[in-house]
Design a protein around this nucleic acid. Structure first.
Lengths: 220, 220
DNA sequence: CTGATATTTCCTGTATTCAGGAATTATGGA
DNA sequence: TCCATAATTCCTGAATACAGGAAATATCAG
């Protein structure tokens, strides 16, 4: 259960990150270190380190002498994340394309089928993220992949916030188009489809469910 | 001297980050928390938090149960940083261009003149970074700007590592071309010049001064 | 010289305590 | 009554002391 090469701070950070992403801890909520410490049966030192990790992931902000607070977001943030994802994922795909093997394409296809078979938003998100990551990872650029992962985290927050109650599964026709282009070696086409596809996420969520103040306005 | 709204951990992180970027602490060097603590007259708790901040900036890596270590880098990392900068700075400029005022252009011009008047690499780097930041900041995308800042940090590390001893000042002709294009409202031209300009940094450093193992191979 | 063991070093985490700032509540004056 | 000021309380930031454990180093026997 508990890996020895896994620090308590890292475990707390993962648990809190998951709650923030899924919306279990809402945007704007304060994170009180003593409260978290007793919940995880730890002292405040690893808790503070976990807070720093959340801060690095953009999931929380520290207001000195006033504690940590879960970050808020609005449609503008979603658009920004989408634009950054488009730019960076296209860059990654361009470098990855020559190194993508048939095995990778097959795995990505499987991930896409898993997404289309998903029955809830959580499973769909996991499969969708896996699809993107499989195609981009061959670029072998660790810093770039880490940035993309962080953006996917933010995207997932929006997804869960907007589509918690009712959620209609998208068809992911574009995923298939990307795979088809890659199979034919049409890197440019794959990149342009990917850019459009990622750009679409900022239009796919129901904007009226976010208010403009940046605070939480969710959802039945 | 000491701002009250400034935590000890943040001060330690800034001081260490500066040393790492300038090369005062070389790549691969271990960061021992107790040594840092006594040097700054602090306990190990804020030091560990500072380490996390360095980790978030990509300046150090934590090997669990073995301590922190300053990250190494090689030409491949430089190319990756350059490619990411090109992608993200073009994105930022495209959003910033319609909001750039004559005052911003004037300030950028001043920064460029300061760069050309710089007598040492440190002053040049500061002015160069200011030039880029002035033109991009009007995009009003905080996450994007923070990513670009982080990439500039990494770029500066390469710059200081490669050009510590002898350093010939570049002419920054391209900076002027970007400004001219922006003054004429030619956003596309400005973006393409910027992309080429940023891409050039990966060819401008003397590659032979980096070895392939990723360790430090610098410089008189 | 080699390999196993012992020692040391230092990272990770706990518990306790305290100082200082922020927010809230209580108090007093107009 | 209402507003401004003062007191209290809460919580973060930080220090100190200490324990457990892993890794590196030194030591010693064969």
């Amino acid at each position: 259960m508990k890996q020895p090469q896994d620090t308590i701070a890292a475990r707390i950070a993962r648990a809190l990150a998951d709650r923030i992403i899924t919306g279990a801890i809402p945007p704007g909520a304060p994170l009180r270190q003593d409260h978290v410490a007793v919940e995880f049966g730890a002292s405040h030192v690893p808790v503070r380190e976990a807070f720093r990790q959340l801060e690095a992931q953009g999931l929380a902000v520290s207001e000195p002498r006033r504690g940590m607070r879960v970050t808020s977001f609005d449609v503008e943030d979603l658009r920004e994340v989408a634009a950054m994802r488009a730019a960076l994922e296209v860059l990654a795909l361009r470098h990855a394309a020559p190194r993508i093997t048939p095995a990778v394409l097959e795995a990505a296809d499987a991930a896409n089928r898993a997404a289309e078979a998903a029955t809830d938003v959580h499973a769909w998100e996991e499969a969708n993220r896996r699809f993107h990551r499989l195609l981009l990872a061959p670029c072998a650029m660790p810093r770039l992949m880490s940035s993309i992962d962080s953006l996917h985290l933010a995207s997932a927050r929006f997804l869960f916030a907007a589509w918690r109650s009712q959620w209609e599964k998208p068809t992911d026709q574009e995923h298939r188009a990307i795979l088809a282009a890659l199979r034919r070696g049409q890197t440019d086409l794959a990149c342009s489809v990917l850019a459009k596809h990622v750009g679409r996420i900022s239009g796919r969520s129901p904007q009226n469910k976010f208010d403009k103040s940046g605070t939480y306005a969710i959802i039945g």
